[in-house]
């Protein structure tokens, strides 16, 4: 768990001032010039406009799980190249480059940890690995995370961040939607809670499978959420899209997420929900 320690030290000791490069950075949303250390302390949320910078899976783990409780699983699962897919690049080269860039083995990291002392099965997606796209590896790791929740009778938390299914694995990527959703049916039957956290962006195949199936669905503010891509929709209807379309706020208004939760409140909120779902300690009526 080397990376995790390093991350913790980084947050506490400010060791990683090279990321972002320089002491100051510009908010991607409002353009405000922000002192990086201040941004970091604020969980990468712009102090002026509340824009939530996209963060790595490790930041979420650090944010959500109790210290020294995280144990990663299935890090050794990697993509085959079932279609021998090649566009401008060969798919195995794309995987190799993504691995080098991110030190991840694919777009999701799964394991177990504790939140407020309660054991949980956790999966966190990471957009930096080929746009957080879901192929066989992501599907398999999510499936195993669900099975860990089932076996240990513990809640499941998935933090999604994905552009959808991974084209380079064709139909096999599509089938990961079916695979993960079928297992979630088992989880539901056993009354184990599943909290789905949607971050910027969560769209297409991931949104149309496990991300939408949480017992409680929490979105970070102003995330892009939806099924079809905004460009495709604009083309279809032949006009500009209404402002705020396909945002977390839009999803809340239309009834498809339970709440929008700021990053600094995420842990407390999930902790509370888990407390509620643990019941009153007496046999259920």
């Amino acid at each position: 768990m080397e990376w995790f320690k390093k991350n913790r030290e980084g947050v506490a000791g400010g060791e990683k001032k090279e990321i972002p490069k320089g002491l100051w950075t510009k908010c991607e949303s409002c353009g405000e010039i922000i002192f990086v250390r201040e941004l970091e302390k604020n969980r990468w949320v712009c102090p002026k406009c509340n824009y939530h910078f996209r963060i790595r899976f490790s930041d979420y783990l650090e944010l959500l799980t109790d210290p020294d409780t995280w144990k990663e699983y299935d890090r050794n699962i990697t993509s085959a190249d079932p279609l021998r897919f090649k566009d401008s690049k060969r798919y195995p080269d794309r995987i190799r480059e993504a691995r080098k860039k991110t030190s991840l083995t694919d777009a999701v990291v799964c394991g177990t940890g504790k939140i407020g002392g309660r054991a949980v099965s956790v999966a966190v997606m990471d957009f930096s690995f080929i746009g957080g796209s879901m192929g066989s590896v992501v599907g398999e790791k999510i499936a195993r995370a669900i099975e860990r929740a089932l076996e240990r009778k513990i809640p499941l938390i998935i933090v999604s961040c994905s552009g959808g299914a991974r084209m380079q694995e064709g139909i096999l990527s599509l089938m990961q939607m079916a695979k993960t959703s079928a297992l979630l049916a088992q989880l539901q039957k056993k009354n184990l809670p599943f909290i789905s956290v949607l971050t910027n962006p969560t769209t297409a195949g991931v949104m149309a499978s496990y991300a939408s199936l949480g017992d409680v669905i929490i979105a970070e503010p102003k995330a892009l959420l939806g099924f079809a891509g905004p460009r495709v929709i604009a083309q279809t209807i032949g006009q500009e899209l209404p402002p705020g379309f396909q945002s977390s706020e839009f999803f809340l208004e239309h009834g498809f997420v339970d709440m929008i939760c700021e990053r600094k409140e995420l842990r407390r909120t999930i902790n509370l929900l888990l407390e509620y779902f643990s019941g009153n300690g007496s046999p259920r009526a």
Partner: peptide, 29 residues
């Protein structure tokens, strides 16, 4: 359920356990 559970192709590579640790921070940077 087993049919859908088994869909997908991947490989298991023990060497991946040894990959260097990822660094935290905003993805965009």
């Amino acid at each position: 359920i087993e049919k859908y559970r088994s869909m997908g192709r991947y490989t298991v590579d023990p060497e991946l356990e040894e990959l260097p640790s990822p660094v935290a921070g905003p993805e965009a940077n």
